[in-house]
Design a protein around this nucleic acid. Structure first.
Lengths: 191, 191
DNA sequence: CCTCTCATGTAAGACGTTACATGATTCA
DNA sequence: TGAATCATGTAACGTCTTACATGAGAGG
C-alpha cells in the first residue's frame, strides 16, 4: 500500500490536509500515481491510528463549511518511511491505460472513431503538459530528484503528444484517401 | 473492467488459453496494462458465463499435466467488444510506479541507495527493451495501430533508459565529489 | 537436486472506486 | 440559476493480488 508512503513523503515538506494531498498527487505525481479522494481520507485515518501521523491543527473555514484538518508526520512515521525508502526490491508496476488498450485494437473498429479519440487524447494531454510546464521552474529548485522527475514527466508527455499527432496525420490521410470526394464541408453546389 | 475487453480483443486474432493470454499481455501490453494469472482465470470464467466466449478446444498435455483450454470469442462477444471500442469517454488512467514514487522522495534518503536502485532499474528496463526490440519487426506487419503502439512503447522505454543513465551519472559524480578519498577498491597500501 | 517455466484453478483478503451526504463560495 | 471547486467523510461494491494446491518437464 504505497499510497501511505506517498502521504508520509509529502508530510516531510509541511503539514497538509487531505484535499491538498489529493491535489498534489493529481497534479505532480500523475505519471507515477493516481488516487481518489476517498482513498486519501481512508489512508489518513489508518495512518493516524497507526501513529505515523497526527492531526496537528484544524483551520476553520469562513462559514459552516468543513474545516481543513492539517496532519503532521510523527517520529514513528519518519522511521517507517525510511524503512520503505531503503527496501525496494523491484516492486511490480501497475499500468492501466484505457486509451492505449483501445488503440491497439482499433484495427477492429472505424477510423473515424479512432481519429476522434486521438484528438480528444491530444487535447487532454496538452492541458496536462501545460500544467506541468508551468510548474517546472519551481520544481527545478527542489533538488535533483524532484527536478529530474519533473523533467522526465514533461519529456514523456511531449513525446506522447508528438506520437499522437503523427497518428492523427496518418488517420486524416487514410480517411481522405479512402473517400476523396466526401468532404465534411458543404461548400459545393447541392446535387 | 477493461481486462475483459483486452481478452476479447486478443481472441479476435485466434483462440487462446489463459496462460497464453497472460504471457501476451505481460510481454506486449506491459506499458498499458498489467495482470495477474488469477485475474485472467477469473475473467475467462465470467466471460464464459456471460456467453461472450466459449471453450472451443482442450489440448491435452503430454502426461497428466493440466491441458490447455482454448477459448474462442462468440458473436455476442464481438458485439460487446465493438460497443466498448466505440464508447470511449476518456476513462481514467491508473499508474502505479513504485520506483518513481520512491525516486521523488530520495532527497530524504541516501545517495548510495538511490544509485543502487537506479542501476537495478536500468537492468530491468534493458531486458524489457530487448524483448520489445526483438518483437518489433513482427509488430510492424500487424497494421498501423499495433505497429505505432509498439513504436511508442519502445521509444518511451529508450527515453526512460537515457534518463536513468543521466541520473546514474549525476549520482556517481555527487558521491565521488562528496568523498573523493574513499574509493571502493583497496588498491592502496594498508594503513 | 533444486529452481524455473508451463498450466490450471480456488479462497481470502487487500486495495481502490463510485455514489452518496453536506454545505459554502466562485464563476459563467 | 446552475455548475464547478473546495472540503470532509461513509458505505457499498468492484477489482486485483497473494498464497495455496497440483503436477510435469527442462536446465543449471
Amino acid at each position: 500500500m504505497s499510497i501511505k508512503y506517498a502521504i508520509l513523503g509529502l508530510l516531510h515538506y509541511r503539514e497538509m490536509y487531505g484535499y491538498q494531498i489529493k491535489d498534489h498527487i493529481a497534479k505532480y505525481f500523475s505519471t507515477m500515481w493516481t488516487v481518489s479522494l476517498a482513498q486519501i481520507y481512508a489512508s489518513l485515518k489508518s495512518l493516524a491510528e497507526e501513529g505515523l501521523i497526527v492531526l496537528s491543527d484544524v483551520v476553520a473555514s469562513p462559514a459552516g463549511a468543513p474545516s481543513k484538518k492539517l496532519y503532521s508526520i510523527t517520529y514513528k512515521g519518519r522511521q517507517e518511511f525510511q524503512h520503505w525508502l531503503k527496501n525496494y526490491d523491484g516492486d511490480n508496476m501497475t499500468h492501466r491505460d484505457p486509451f492505449m488498450l483501445r488503440f491497439v485494437f482499433f484495427g477492429f473498429g472505424e477510423e473515424e472513431d479512432a481519429l476522434g479519440f486521438v484528438e480528444k487524447e491530444i487535447r487532454r494531454n496538452e492541458k496536462q503538459r501545460d500544467v506541468r510546464l508551468e510548474a517546472l521552474p519551481r520544481r527545478k529548485t527542489q533538488g535533483m530528484y524532484v527536478s529530474k522527475a519533473a523533467e522526465l514527466g514533461l519529456k514523456r508527455r511531449e513525446m506522447y503528444l508528438d506520437w499522437l499527432n503523427e497518428v492523427r496525420e496518418i488517420l486524416i490521410n487514410t480517411i481522405s484517401e479512402r473517400s476523396p470526394s466526401v468532404k465534411k464541408d458543404n461548400s459545393g453546389p447541392a446535387d
